[in-house]
Structures are given as structure tokens and as C-alpha cells.
Amino acid sequence: MRAPGSVLDMWRLHVAVLVIAVVAQLIDVQEIPIGPAAILLLPLLYAFLLSVLINPHVVGAASKFIRKREVKAASPMIVIAIMPFIAKFGTTIGPSFEELIEAGPALLLQEVGNLATVAFAFPLAIWVFKLRREAIGATFSVAREPNLAIIVDRYGLKSPEGTGVMVVYVVGTLFGTLIFSVMASLSASLGIFTPEALAMACGVGSGSMLAACSGSLSGMWPGMEDTVVALAGASNLLTYATGLYVSLFVALPAVEWLYKKARPDEKPVARKEN
């Protein structure tokens, strides 16, 4: 299953990635503010876009430098390249272990709320939009990096499931702060939720979603800023500590099971990471 040849043999691929990553890093984070939220442009997005542009399957002329064999070798590199990120992410959870234990039942159970994604978005994807297996990747989670890595591990990124999770990941990265601050303001103005509950819900996504969301809530309840930020932060920590395991052992098997029930006629495709 390994890509043919050695590291040196694939120098074009790795040099391309190095150049793209350096350019992306030099452009740096750019923010387009919209009210209290912003459209966030991150280096990882530029890296993705630039590498799509030199992908021979997208831009034919690129095949002079990046050939089909480099494309093939890039696939197994994705999961390896995400590993140091996941390791770093584990090391941010360890030091806060005691705070997580103290976080209490509301925060822990609120993790279950993440499964609402499956309950609402999956039927929409299957019966309204008539999506096929890409619905699995798109709706099993809120599609942050750990969830992306789970899909890559199980199906490969070059699969319908991989495409599904990738689109949600990119949308979340681009518009996540906007969506979360709008949702926070909307649900706060409904008047049916306690500020504490809305603050906890702010933590279900990425760090920038958390910031935009708790910022909006602090705007609604100026006196409660400290409580909002503390609860949202604890919830975010918990999401990152447990989210990977919840989506691996609960959400993904559940979506797979639902998919088999929803599309009983579809033959399971014997797909191999190629």
C-alpha cells in the first residue's frame, strides 16, 4: 500500500508542499470583519487552494511538474502530516485534566448535544438533498481537525466520505465565526435558553468559533462576560478532549448504521485507498 519509491524519488511532491506551506504561512491570517464576527482566512486554506491549483487533475498544465504518481503518493502523506497536529492537541488537554474533571455533569452531557448534528443534518442530507456516502463525512460531526483525521483514517480523504468532511471543514474554517455568532445572538434573543447553556454551547467548535460566539453572548449580557467566557472555555476544552472519541465510537458508527438503513439497496463498495 505504500507509495512506490523513496523520499528522494518523490522530491517533487515534498518540495511543492514545502514551497506552498511557506507561501501560505507568509500570507498569514487575514480577517474580514463583519459586525462582531469575521470571515477568517487561515494559512491552511491558502495551502489547500494553492495545492489544488498545481494538482494536474485540476490544472492540466501542472502535470509538467506534479505527475499522477506524485498525486498518488500525496494521499498517504495526509494522515502522517496531521499527526504532529494531533499530538500537539493532546498536549494542550493534559495540563487541564483537573479542570475537566471539575467541569461537572452539564458540561459532560452537553457533549451529547453534538450528536444533534447527526439527528438533524443526516436526514436532511439523505432525503432532502439525496446525497450518497458523502453525507456520512459531512454530518457525523462538526468537522474540526480531529474529526477530519478520523475520516481520513477510516476512508481516506480521497473518498465520498472524505469529500463530505472536507467541505464542512472548509466552510467551518471560513464562515464558522460568522455562523456561531449569528446562532448565539439569535438563540439569546429567543429568551428560552439560560446564558450559561448558550455559553457552554459556544465551546463545541474551534477556538475562533468559541471567541466569536462568546463575544456575541457577552454583548447580549454585558454583566456576565466572565461566566460566559469561563463556561465556553471549559466546554471547548472538553470538546477537544472527548470529541475525538465520541465521534469515533458513537457518532460515526451511528451514521454508518443509519446510512445502511436509509439506503438498504446500495451495495457496500469495496473501496481501497489507492
Binding site: F120, A138, S187
Partner: peptide, 21 residues
């Protein structure tokens, strides 16, 4: 998929808020 993505993010927020509440 774009619409689903927006829906996924929004429903995760509401779902968590309901359970926490």
C-alpha cells in the same frame, strides 16, 4: 454540501444549547 455544512454547524450549536439547558 455547502448548505449541509452551514446546517451542521448551526444544529450542533442549538443541540448543545438544548442539552446544556
Amino acid at each position: 454540501l455547502l448548505l449541509i455544512a452551514v446546517f451542521v454547524l448551526a444544529s450542533t450549536y442549538i443541540g448543545s444549547a438544548v442539552v446544556a439547558d
